[in-house]
């Protein structure tokens, strides 16, 4: 019998190694898997490469992981916020590497990894600093920049409901990067508000099919 729902949250991230690439869902705090991040902090893995739209807000969640000095590099589109002080401090001290990626290119690079696409040409950022040194091509009258997928060892995500096969639904804008990150990571770990029996999620309403999900934990 397939059962991706784990009883103990600690088991969900026990095998994360130092140096791993970890995608973390969420746009700001909407969809951020705060309990899974707390688990990762407790687990102790370091030198992590983190993929998220932002670089943490205030002192909890991703900001706490950064503040704890566990992150070596971050790929994101918008690190600078009024309350991104943990990122700001380490970045200015040269202790945190930043790869700044336009938001849509970030999403598409993640999508490409999950979809088995080797690279793609996008018009975004052509002629700007963020395309410097990148291969370009003129196609059908437009200029494009070559971008490569972002793969990850783990994706830490927050969803609303899951069944034991790992089918997921989300709540409102908390969905954001989760469905594409689920497909892009070797091991996708999801915290949910509610676990339900098979069949309680209408197949028409499944947003992320369980094939993209490895582990589920329920948080209160």
């Amino acid at each position: 019998m397939i059962n991706k729902i784990l009883a103990a949250p600690a088991a969900a991230l026990a095998d994360v190694r130092d140096g791993a690439t970890v995608m973390i869902g969420g746009f700001g705090n909407a969809g951020m898997p705060a309990e899974l991040i707390d688990c990762l902090i407790a687990q102790g893995a370091k030198d992590l490469t983190v993929v998220n739209n932002n670089a943490g807000n205030a002192d909890s969640g991703l900001a706490a992981l950064i503040g704890a000095g566990r992150v070596r590099k971050i790929l994101c589109s918008f690190p600078r916020q009024t309350d991104s002080w943990h990122f700001d401090r380490l970045y200015r001290a040269g202790k945190l590497e930043l790869e700044l990626v336009p938001q849509g290119t970030l999403a598409e690079r993640i999508r490409a990894a999950g979809a088995g696409v080797g690279a793609f040409f996008t018009p975004t950022a052509f002629g700007t600093r963020l395309a410097e040194g990148k291969e370009t091509r003129h196609i059908n009258g437009r200029d494009y920049v070559l971008e490569y997928p972002i793969y990850a060892d783990y994706a830490l995500l927050k969803a609303d409901r899951a069944d034991r096969w790992g089918n997921l639904t989300y709540r409102k804008t908390a969905r954001n990067f989760a469905p594409i990150m689920a497909a892009a990571a070797k091991c996708t770990v999801v915290q949910v508000r509610e676990t339900v029996e098979l069949g309680q999620i209408d197949p028409e309403h499944v947003v992320t099919p369980g094939i993209f999900v490895n582990r589920v934990i329920k948080v209160l």
Partner: peptide
């Protein structure tokens, strides 16, 4: 306010009747 419903500036938001939610790759 609902913490799961925010706009691109991360401020609390609402959705109109007839609105839709979608993931980031679709959005872009």
């Amino acid at each position: 306010e609902d913490e799961d419903l925010i706009d691109a500036g991360k401020a609390p938001a609402t959705i109109l009747t007839g609105g839709a939610y979608f993931h980031h790759a679709d959005s872009f």
